[in-house]
């Protein structure tokens, strides 16, 4: 959990261009060992494109990327064995049984054990960990949606990865399933020194799961820090309410402590009904995204709106793909 560990992901000036569309325009961030890093951003910000470049599934247009010390564009099998990817399953391996598939996929990692890590993760143990114990001998197509997603996580973890990627892991979940899933991820994060990187467009999710959040908007990182740092660093406008002489007041201020001190110095006991609401992460996030959209954070966005929003709804980042289709 200590963000002071060695650098696991290093991204500098990452650019991705599909035809005339710049999907990523100089993305820079790092992830450290043992950290849970959330990449937060609205739909179409380029999150999926970024994570797929890190996973070695896509080639980038420009920039420096290093994942576990290697360029993912040229990652070898040993590199692949150190990485876990939680894919959103659909119909694949429907005839396989849960235990059978995990045990089978484990065999791919057996040759990649090191002194520190014994691979793969024992299938029975892993099944218990993700709470699929009573479904171990079920055919995968018989699992419910939530159970399948637990299996997806188990598949991502079966090689005891040093780094785990999750792309929009809770898209389409109901609140209860989302809650369960969060507990599962938090459990994994607490259990070992696996670094976890996830993307989400849900601020509450990022806040709940992540040690650190990077906010991606229009292909740029617009903020980077812990939830508390973000709230402080960017807007930092707390809301102060008070009553003076029967009159109610509301004011947004940067230094709420200083402001309140001043208030008391001036009016003393005449002040009543004081309430200070610290700026929430949500305010920060909305302010950031809004700022970027109104053009302060980067070049005018009018041309990419069409490209980035013309996507697939739920997963949002279909934009890059569409553009890619037209290039091919």
């Amino acid at each position: 959990m200590s963000p002071s560990g060695e650098t696991v992901i290093e991204v500098e000036g990452l650019r991705m261009r599909y035809g005339a569309n710049d999907v990523l325009r100089g993305v820079t961030f790092r992830a450290h060992q043992g950290e849970v890093l959330a990449m937060l951003g609205p739909n179409g910000a380029g999150k999926t494109t970024t994570i797929e470049i890190l996973e070695g599934f896509r080639m980038r247009s420009a920039g420096h990327v290093s994942v576990l010390g290697q360029d993912p564009a040229h990652g070898d099998e040993n590199w692949r064995s150190r990485i876990g990817i939680v894919l959103q399953s659909w119909r694949d391996h429907g005839k396989w049984r849960v235990r059978e598939l995990l045990a089978h996929l484990g065999t791919y990692y057996a040759g990649h054990s090191t002194e520190r890590v014994t691979r793969p993760w024992d299938a029975a143990e892993l099944i218990a960990l993700v709470g699929l114990g009573e479904h171990a001998d079920k055919q995968i197509r018989m699992l419910s949606g939530g159970q399948r997603r637990r299996l997806d996580v188990a598949i991502g973890m079966v090689g005891r990865p040093e780094l785990l990627f999750l792309d929009e892991p809770t898209a389409g979940f109901d609140p209860e399933a989302r809650h369960e899933f969060h507990d599962l991820i938090l459990g994994l994060a607490a259990a070992g020194d696996t670094t976890i990187m996830l993307t989400t467009h849900d601020l509450a999710e990022a806040d709940k799961l992540a040690d650190r959040i990077v906010i991606l908007n229009h292909g740029r990182i617009v903020a980077d820090g812990t939830a508390a740092e973000l709230a402080e660093q960017i807007v930092g406008e707390d809301e102060v309410r008070w009553t003076l002489d029967g009159q109610r007041y509301v004011r947004s201020v940067k230094d709420s402590t200083g402001f309140v001190r001043g208030l008391f110095e001036e009016h003393g006991t005449a002040v009543s009904g004081l309430a200070v609401r610290p700026s929430s992460l949500e305010d920060t996030y909305l302010a950031l995204v809004h700022r970027a959209e109104s053009g302060e954070g980067g070049p005018p966005p009018e041309d990419e709106d069409e490209a980035e929003d013309g996507g697939t709804g739920e997963n949002g980042d279909g934009a890059g793909d569409q553009a890619k289709e037209s290039v091919r």
């Binding site: 999926t48 797929e52 599934f57 894919l87 959103q88 697939t312 997963n315 980042d317 279909g318």
Partner: peptide
């Protein structure tokens, strides 16, 4: 060419 976005598509 396979990627998560493609399978989603």
């Amino acid at each position: 060419r396979e990627s998560g976005a493609r399978v989603a598509a």
